[in-house]
Amino acid sequence: MEPTAPIIRLSHVRKFYGSKEVLKGIDLDIYPGQVIGYIGPNGAGKSTTVKILCGLISDYEGSIEIKGVNPKEDPVTAKGYIGYIPELAELYDVLTPAEFLSLMAELYNMDATVAQERMTKMLAAFGLADHMHERMDTFSKGMRQKVLITSGLLHNPDIIILDEPLSGLDANSVIIVKELISKLSKEGKTIFYCSHMMDVVEKVSDRIVLINEGTVIANGTFEELKAQQGDSSLEKIFAHLTAQTSLTDAADQLMNAFD
């Protein structure tokens, strides 16, 4: 039931750091409304892919289309379609959430009143209404993450890229974000979800893309992956496909170190 035109298309995307090839020809079509779980071990090339999609890295080989726009040719338009929620809680923390979000709204050319109304509602939903005009340098990691999530969604983008969005959030906020992801996808938003938390990825994603050493090694729904690999959970499929040695052996070796 896939629609005809992909909203994001990566063709033969390669990226080198010096002589090291970090992405070895990634091909990926993502369709509107899909929630893509993008997983892989450390150093697999996940962050590099995300940085390329967000326009942070432009010296890659191959081609990318975001809603038909090539970000190399028209980065501003391409970036406008995307809402990016970075992994690190990178904020100008001497600002207040209201000030920070106003900056975001301006950069996305939003109408000031609309932005004001929206950010008030969103922060209130996250329980931050009382902290709207306090400087963020006193905020906890979770509070900062909520502001970041708000900043990524504020302009109502068609594509949302989340890089470990749940880090630092408490259990209740995790539930809110998970719900939010499924509601956004029902609205037709495309979500690119990068994470190490297999249980969450398993639950929220329509399709799972597993990347290892710069290559896509699995791509399909959870059910398809289960059928292919014969494993019962995403965690096991992940380990099966990416770990070079048995993980139980590794744990045994760790224990043996005490002898």
């Binding site: 990016y84 690190l88 990178e90």
Partner: peptide
């Protein structure tokens, strides 16, 4: 360096 994550992914020109 925070600009890299905060401003550069936004639709602004170089």
């Amino acid at each position: 360096v925070r600009d890299n994550y905060i401003i550069l992914p936004k639709p602004i020109s170089d």
